[in-house]
Simulated scan of single mutants.
Amino acid sequence: MTTIMLDAGHGPNTAGKRSPDGVLREFHFNNAVAQLVKHHLVKEGMTVLFSHNEQRDVPLAARTKLANQRNADAFVSIHANAYGNSWNSANGIETYVYPSAMKQSIALATLTQNALIIACKRRNRGVKKANFAVLRETRMPAILIECGFMTNREEAALLLSNSYRQQCAQAIASAITTWIRRGKR
């Protein structure tokens, strides 16, 4: 049985993780997409676990510890990006892997990034490398997805829309399913 650990990045009370006008809280987008991804993956017969909690912030160490304890096949962290604290022109979608990521992480990141760009028709910022705790501390293939910028007025409006959340979720779930069917390659 395939087990996927979904992580709605940050938490409901994480300071500063919102659009400049305060209308969009990042966790609300992240959690909504995680719920939708779970729905799609469960229909594919996968077990889906969450590393986050809808009521409180969960420390990064607790998130990665849970993923490692449950021996998940993949860790997928869902986020909305920001550039500074005010409205600006930064835009697009990007997916991160750890700098010395295993090949399976790079394959999953590439599939996910491509699926998101096709589905959402946003600027392709590519697959990038970063030393993020959720990528560094997990023992399974792990990716962190940035689905658009909360500091860009156009993308903030998209991040608030149910249709965009559905597009993101479908693309992420499709990429994970393809990756599993290809033997995690």
Rank of each mutant, 00 (worst) to 15 (best):
E155C: 00
I172L: 06
R182S: 12
L158E: 03
M150A: 07
R153Y: 08
S174P: 04
E155Y: 02
N162K: 14
A171G: 04
Q170F: 09
S161N: 04
F149A: 02
W179A: 01
R153H: 09
I180G: 06
R181M: 12
I180D: 08
Q170K: 15
W179V: 07
I180A: 12
E155Q: 03
R165I: 09
Q170W: 00
N162I: 10
A175R: 02
E155F: 01
M150C: 08
A175H: 02
I172F: 05
S161K: 05
A173D: 07
I180S: 08
L159T: 01
N152T: 13
L159K: 05
A171P: 01
A156G: 03
E155N: 00
Q167G: 10
L159S: 02
Q166C: 11
L159G: 02
S161L: 09
T178L: 13
N162R: 11
Q166M: 15
L160W: 05
S161F: 03
A171W: 04
L158A: 08
R181W: 13
F149C: 09
I180W: 13
A173Y: 02
A169S: 12
S161H: 03
C168K: 07
T177P: 01
C168Q: 09
T151H: 10
R165S: 10
N152W: 08
L160P: 03
R165N: 12
I180C: 13
M150I: 02
N162G: 15
L158M: 13
R181V: 06
L158V: 02
I176E: 09
Q166Y: 12
T151Q: 11
N162L: 15
M150R: 05
A169T: 11
Q166I: 11
I180Q: 11
Q170H: 15
C168F: 08
Q166P: 00
A173G: 15
R153N: 08
Q167N: 15
R153K: 15
A175F: 01
E154M: 11
A169R: 12
T178I: 15
I172T: 09
